[in-house]
């Protein structure tokens, strides 16, 4: 199959349709980037607030509110992690089509954002758990409130600990946004399907798409690893992690530190 003619056709397609391919790439990157950023914001909010432990002295009203909030957050996370993003995309797009009257690209960005938010919540929660309890106690012993402790001491360390997982989420989004071509979001996958349909060179078209996706994800992985290295350089004694996927840095000294291992999703 992979003979000279195959590659010639591939190059042919790539050069003839490079405009629509690039258009697809742009949409893919935009959607993945926006989705990851909004998802991270959601994750910080939900993961951070979920991890706050109320004082024993807190009033029963605030304890009840916290409990209800925790249940809602858990339901959100489990639903979006437990169903395929393809199904979420199709369902949400059509369900809210008459409400928002939105384009597939907007709907796609929306879906990928809240989907990523669910995963990010768990990643941030894991990152928070990887921060030594001693850090919390030290902050509280100085009179800082639980909110102040969370935002000045815990979250900065949690984000740093969870950075490889957060970056990984971006790489995953580049690939997995392809399922949203089902609602005709005009990403790389959608464009490739169109090219395949008009040229009848199905194998070649999707091969080109695969190559472009691979270039995108590899580039992102390399950039992310660079950022990670620089972050580690700032705090010299933190051992470096080997890959961006699922690996975690272990902060110095504390032997009790757990790893952050968010469940990887399968689409």
């Amino acid at each position: 199959m992979f003979n000279q003619k195959f590659f010639a056709t591939c190059i042919d397609i790539a050069s003839k349709y490079h405009a629509s391919l690039l258009l697809g790439v742009r949409v893919t990157i935009m959607v993945a980037l926006t989705g990851t950023i909004i998802g991270l914001a959601l994750g910080l909010l939900i993961g951070g607030t979920r991890a706050i432990k109320l004082d024993i002295q807190a009033s029963s009203t605030s304890k009840t509110i916290k409990k209800i909030y925790d249940v809602i957050a858990t339901v959100y996370i489990e639903i979006f992690r437990g169903t395929p993003m393809m199904v979420q995309g199709a369902f949400i797009y059509y369900a809210l089509l008459h409400v928002f009257n939105w384009t597939p690209n907007v709907a796609g960005t929306f879906v990928i954002s809240i989907n990523t938010g669910a995963y990010m919540s768990e990643i941030i929660r894991g990152g928070i758990q990887s921060v030594d309890v001693g850090q919390v106690e030290a902050a509280r012993s100085l009179g800082m409130s639980s909110m102040q402790t969370m935002f000045t001491v815990i979250l900065p360390q949690a984000i740093k600990n969870a950075f490889p997982a957060i970056g990984n989420e971006f790489v995953v989004n580049i690939k997995d946004s392809s399922v949203l071509s089902i609602i005709s979001m005009t990403d790389l996958m959608y464009q490739s399907s169109r090219i395949a349909g008009s040229t009848y060179h199905f194998t070649e078209s999707y091969f080109v798409a695969a190559c472009v996706y691979l270039v995108l994800t590899l580039t992102c992985s390399i950039i992310l690893r660079h950022i990670e290295k620089r972050m580690n350089k700032v705090a010299t004694s933190i051992p470096q992690s080997d890959t961006t996927t699922e690996s975690q840095k272990i902060a110095p000294k504390s032997e009790k530190k757990q790893r952050v291992l968010p469940k990887r999703r399968k689409k």
């Binding site: 106690e137 012993s141 001491v153 110095p252």
Partner: peptide
């Protein structure tokens, strides 16, 4: 009431 811990607990960040 200040406190000094066995494991120091300096803020790592």
């Amino acid at each position: 009431v200040g406190m000094v811990f066995q494991a120091f607990n300096l803020f790592n960040n």
